[in-house]
Simulated scan of single mutants.
Amino acid sequence: MNLDDAYANVPYIPGGADYPARWSAEAQAFRDARVAEGRAELGISYGPSERQAFDLFHPEGTAKGLMVFVHGGYWLRFDRSLWSHLAAGALARGWAVAMPSYDLCPEVRIADITMQIARAVTAAAARVDGPIALAGHSAGGHLVARMGMTGVLPDDVAARLSHVMPISPVSDLRPLLETSMNADFRLDLAAAEAESPALMAPPSVPVTVWVGADERPVFLDQAQWLAEAWGATHHVAKDRHHFDIIEALSDPDSAMMDQLLG
């Protein structure tokens, strides 16, 4: 059985193909405004490759803590430049926000990306004091879930985690073995199991799994699998699909931000 259609989002979202251009334009305008205010540090390196870099946005005054947002794209596409506007909600609540890029498959494996994000979180944590809240979307949801596992982050950084929010995550990678994307992922069963948060013991940090009610059935399943495996809070957002589910991050008064930052 080929699961390509099951994991395809664009054909099932009205105007789905238009979202990346919209995200890019909104993100660029947001970055330009923060640079003009002197509250953005762009392209901070955390590793040897060009894509191993993050943008850091600062609130007015001393930050209450650090939020890190990890983007999705099936570990195959996109970078930090499309999501800057999603920092607005946390900034308005007084938190700094880091947004990393990472190397993509097939140049690297998913396990390599996991370790890159761990280095990115560690580097950002060294620049901002206080608690650390992690949010990630889709493949990024997988990556922030992995950050909660023992030994992935340094102990001193892991001790600062206040909340982890996988949004529409891929939590069990085994179904991806039955997609054509695996030509780039190069996963076998052992590698898929080793990178599947839903197959791992739950972290000690609070976790909320967030998903849109109008998402593809496989993403509703993936979210439920993780929530059940970890005994995590499971929120299904009414009238939201895989692309607009993340818009709540830009709203400081959204239920998503209340849950993530308290």
Rank of each mutant, 00 (worst) to 15 (best):
M1I: 14
N2G: 00
L3P: 01
D5A: 15
A6R: 14
V10C: 01
P11Y: 07
P11E: 11
Y12L: 02
I13V: 15
A17L: 00
D18C: 00
Y19E: 11
S24G: 06
A25C: 02
E26W: 07
A27V: 04
A29D: 13
D32N: 12
R34D: 00
G38Q: 03
R39I: 01
L42I: 15
I44V: 14
S45L: 00
S45K: 15
G47C: 01
P48Q: 08
P48E: 14
S49M: 03
R51K: 14
R51W: 05
R51Q: 12
A53K: 13
L56E: 11
L56V: 08
L56N: 11
F57Y: 15
E60W: 00
K64F: 02
L66H: 10
G72I: 03
F78W: 11
S81A: 14
L82S: 12
W83A: 01
H85N: 15
L86T: 01
A87P: 07
G89C: 11
A92G: 13
V97M: 08
P100H: 11
Y102T: 05
D103N: 13
D103M: 03
L104W: 12
L104Y: 05
E107V: 11
V108S: 04
D112K: 00
M115A: 12
M115Y: 00
R119A: 15
A120K: 09
A123C: 01
A123T: 14
A124M: 09
R127Q: 13
D129Y: 03
G130I: 01
G130P: 04
P131L: 02
P131H: 03
I132N: 05
L134K: 09
H137Q: 12
H137L: 07
H137I: 02
H137S: 10
H137N: 09
A139S: 15
A139D: 06
G140L: 09
G141F: 03
H142M: 00
V144T: 05
V144F: 03
A145Q: 07
A145L: 05
G148A: 05
T150V: 12
T150K: 14
G151K: 10
V152Q: 04
V152H: 01
L153P: 07
V157R: 01
S162D: 08
S162M: 10
H163N: 06
V164D: 04
M165L: 13
M165D: 02
P166H: 04
S168T: 06
V170Q: 07
S171Q: 09
L173Q: 07
P175W: 03
P175H: 03
P175S: 04
L176S: 08
L176I: 13
L177Y: 06
E178R: 15
A183F: 00
D184F: 01
D184G: 00
R186S: 13
L187S: 06
D188R: 05
A190P: 02
A191M: 09
A192T: 06
E195A: 13
S196W: 09
S196L: 08
A198H: 10
L199A: 12
M200P: 03
P203C: 04
P203K: 11
V205M: 09
V207W: 05
T208K: 01
T208P: 02
W210I: 01
E215I: 07
V218Q: 06
F219D: 05
L226S: 05
H234F: 12
K238S: 11
K238P: 00
D239A: 13
D239T: 06
H241S: 05
H241F: 08
H241L: 02
D244R: 05
D244Q: 10
A248S: 13
S250W: 04
S250A: 15
M256S: 03
Q259S: 06
Q259T: 15
G262T: 09
